[in-house]
Amino acid sequence: MRHVVPKVTPEVKPLTEPVLLILTSLADQPRHGYALLKDIEWLSGGRVRMSTGTLFGALRRLLEEGWIERFELEDTSRQKQAYRLAAAGRKQLQLELDRMRQLTRAGFARLRAGEAV
């Protein structure tokens, strides 16, 4: 049986689901709070309907870590505060997605191996 051995990257800690979803949502464009909630619901296929307490708790930690940045939107929409991914956050998201890709590959390889037995 051939094993896919995951590369060990000890400095990378798995992100929590809210953090992963927020970083993913901000990966392509800045969003304000309500747009984040809606996009996270869409990204998760309707499975995750994040509460405002969870969302803003995670946003605060991400701001403190320097993974996201806050800025003022110039348009006249109801919410002027928006968030965008900072370079550190982009790197963390990339590391997490790489980690998940390795895990996914290993998982499918083992499923195939199990079916072949």
Binding site: G33, Y34, L37, T52, G53, F56, R78, Q79, Q81
Partner: peptide, 17 residues
Amino acid sequence: GHRDQFAEEMASVFEQA
């Protein structure tokens, strides 16, 4: 500190949702 930073925004998002 959290209230000063986020309370208005949280309330606004809550109202929309």
